[in-house]
């Protein structure tokens, strides 16, 4: 859910912008330590990859279709910081090119999907992966964190909207979380399938910290 301009009050979008600018700065610094001068081209093509992957429609029930959001996918493949940058770049491009999400709300959108979605999702994935271990841990961790990341990001939208006085908290939160609990199932299935495939064919491409 990309929040447009005008939906958030200044007491919400201004702090969200500050957090996002600081957060992205931190992620860029962390990533450039690992990737050095490879960072720019690699992040660029990876953002193009997520952008393209989001355009592929999956058949759901009846005639409806859904698409991948890719937050956890990016984080599992590239690591939390690089994943967050890629998602933030995609969100910025979507805001500029398709007016998908507003300019003032971009900070909040980056916060929801890039920080809560990708980095938050990665933290959960990493814990589950370590507990279960092996490839099984990677798949289960991916599934659970992909589902959670969608639910948490959409709940954050509800929270931000109610802080802005745009929608009542008590109704908006369960409604948003409820709908996205269903959407999240699709996201989890697709992300697991993609990660499972990469794991089978090129396991070296999956991000492992310090290995």
């Amino acid at each position: 859910m990309h929040i447009p301009d005008g939906f958030l009050a200044v007491n919400t979008w201004a702090p969200a912008w500050l957090i996002s600018v600081g957060g992205i700065g931190y992620c860029l610094k962390k990533t450039s330590l690992v990737l050095k001068d490879r960072m720019v081209p690699l992040m660029g093509v990876m953002a193009a990859f997520i952008f393209a992957a989001q355009m592929l429609n999956f058949p759901v029930m009846g005639g409806t279709s859904g698409h991948l959001l890719g937050g956890v996918l990016a984080a599992v493949l590239l690591g939390p910081y690089a994943g967050a940058i890629v998602i933030a770049v995609v969100l910025t491009a979507q805001c500029l090119i398709f007016q998908d999400g507003g300019l003032t709300a971009l900070g909040a959108n980056i916060f929801n999907m890039s920080f809560l979605g990708a980095i938050g999702g990665y933290l959960i994935y990493n814990i589950i992966r370590k507990i279960i271990g092996d490839n099984k841990g990677i798949i289960i961790g991916t599934g659970i964190s992909a589902w959670l990341s969608v639910v948490v990001a959409s709940s954050a939208v509800a929270v931000e909207l109610s802080i802005s006085g745009t929608s009542p908290f008590r109704v908006a939160l369960p409604a948003m979380a409820g709908v996205h609990a269903l959407i999240g199932i699709g996201e989890a299935i697709i992300t697991c399938l993609v990660i499972g495939f990469v794991l089978k064919v090129r396991p070296d491409l999956i991000y492992r910290k310090g290995e």
Binding site: L42, V45, F49, F197, V198, V201
Partner: peptide, 14 residues
């Protein structure tokens, strides 16, 4: 199949 396509796309893009 579509998910596998995304996987292939990732590897090629990388």
């Amino acid at each position: 199949v579509l998910a596998n396509m995304i996987g292939v796309l990732f590897m090629r893009t990388y």
